[in-house]
Write a protein that binds this DNA or RNA. Structure first.
Length: 415
RNA sequence: GUGGCCAUAGUUCAGUUGGUUAGAACGCCAGGUUGUGGCCCUGGAGGCCGUGGGUUCAAGUCCCACUGGUCACCCCA
């Protein structure tokens, strides 16, 4: 094979696009009901936007970004996630000045240069939402409910919602120091990865998957026990509201998001039907990000979700998206009807019908077979005799019935 | 970035201790109905057996390298 798609990228073939389109439509309709408007940002940005917002020390920025210098010698990066671009656009266009609360969603490709595996590609697709301008726990809950509703609409029930609070700029640094002190005591026993994190990102140590690390850190102090009054009250209200609207959750005091900008609420939705890459969606509050990017302090909350993983779950469940079929397949019985068939096909399409006809000069039998394979509702057989008396044979394929029809009355008959 | 497994028609896979023209099913095309689908029957097209090297009289089969895929670690959606 001379050319193939680049490692970690995939062609979404015609056989699969109906599934993608169905899922995208469902997602958009839920966003619409929650009154989130779509925002479309470029897929590349200045590199600094991402390193600044996601965090220099994160794996995403440190080793996964597609970064290159363009011909003007500017450092460009293919977006590894959606929030940074949305916030950049929010600031650039002063969206906050138009209304106090901005609710937007996005859907599109993201890029991270990781080793591909089940549920992980280098070009993958995410959808997500951001609500900017409200500090209230109600907004956190709306965002969580929004993500949950999408899965619910798609019939996905085997998931779990975990929530945590990662504190704010006041209580988190204080807690981090306490945690570091504790971690240093057992540093020599921890896995190499965790050892490295003690100083730079101690909270990640608690989220380690290493069994030994898990056991060692079992009794470590958790952020949720060291929240200041404001963060604690916020977290309590989020939990209370989730319970009241009937969204089950579990509190996981060790949950840490991979991006540095989160404050207070952090959450993750995982599927029990996926392999090792089981996170369907993740998100949380990020009250400091906009300030970090040079704007005035603006509270925000959002989530991001993976489309491939969502589709994997649906496929595993055997879900079949609705397919579209031609309404009528015009079967050309002999060459004298060929021109007429093409003209009629195009005319009917223009009137709004899905119509197909033979372009391969095939036998009547082959055309009938094709009409059947495409699950066309009708086959219309037209040849010399039909054209002479202005009547064709309209066959209803599923019902195995056929009768003569006036060719001029086709638009009415096909309604 | 590290490791395991895999690589034969469009697809899913067979291919016996290395032995002559590499098979099946499904799919595709055509015929059986010289103007009628789904079932059935018959026929056909379609493979430098991932690439390169090695061992051997002989390699799809054994060895090595590379490439690609896949799964896991890591990380995350």
């Amino acid at each position: 094979m001379l050319y193939r798609a680049i490692k970690g990228t995939k062609d979404i073939l015609p056989a699969e696009t109906p599934m993608w389109q169905f899922v995208e439509q469902t997602i958009r309709s839920v966003f619409h009901r929650f009154n989130y408007k779509e925002i479309r940002t470029p897929i590349f940005e200045q590199t600094a936007l991402f390193s600044r917002s996601i965090g220099e020390l994160t794996d995403i920025v440190g080793k996964e970004m597609y970064t290159f210098t363009d011909r003007s010698n500017e450092s460009i990066t293919l977006r590894p996630e959606g929030t940074a671009s949305v916030m950049r656009a929010y600031l650039q266009h002063n969206l906050g000045q138009e209304q106090p609360l901005t609710k937007v969603y996005y859907i599109g490709p993201m890029f991270r240069q990781e080793r591909p595996q089940a549920g992980r590609l280098r070009q993958f697709h995410q959808f997500g939402a951001e609500a900017t301008g409200s500090p209230s726990p109600e907004t956190d809950v709306e965002i969580i409910a929004l993500a949950i509703e999408i899965y619910k609409q798609l019939g996905i029930i085997n998931y779990s919602l975990q929530i945590n609070s990662v504190g704010d700029e006041e209580c988190r640094p204080r807690y981090k120091e306490i945690l570091k002190t504790e971690l240093r005591k057992i540093a020599h026993k921890l896995s190499p990865d965790s050892q490295k994190r003690i100083e730079q990102n101690p909270m990640r140590v608690l989220d380690s998957k290493d069994e030994n690390d898990k056991a060692l850190t079992e009794r470590m102090p958790l952020m949720i026990d060291y929240l200041n009054e404001q963060c604690a009250a916020h977290f309590e209200q989020v939990k209370k509201l989730l319970t009241e609207i009937g969204i089950p959750y579990t509190v996981n005091g060790r949950l840490v998001r991979g991006l540095d900008y989160y404050t207070k609420t952090a959450f993750e939705i995982t599927s029990t039907e996926l392999g090792s890459q089981d996170a369907l969606a993740g998100g949380g509050r990020y009250d400091l990000l906009i300030e970090e990017l040079g704007g005035k302090r603006t509270p925000s909350v959002g989530f991001a979700a993976g489309l491939e993983r969502l589709i994997m779950v649906l496929t595993k469940k055997g879900f079949q998206p609705p397919k579209s079929h031609p309404t009528v397949f015009i079967v050309v019985a002999d060459d004298s009807a060929r021109e007429w068939a093409l003209k009629k096909t195009i005319e009917l399409r223009s009137l709004g019908f899905a119509v197909e006809t033979d372009l391969l000069n095939r036998s009547v039998k082959a055309q009938m077979k094709e009409a059947d394979r495409q699950q066309s509702t009708y086959a219309l057989v037209v040849g010399t005799t039909e054209l002479q008396n202005g009547k064709g044979i309209l066959k209803h394929l599923a019902e195995h019935t056929q009768h003569e029809v006036e060719l001029n009355a086709l638009p009415q008959l096909l309604q």
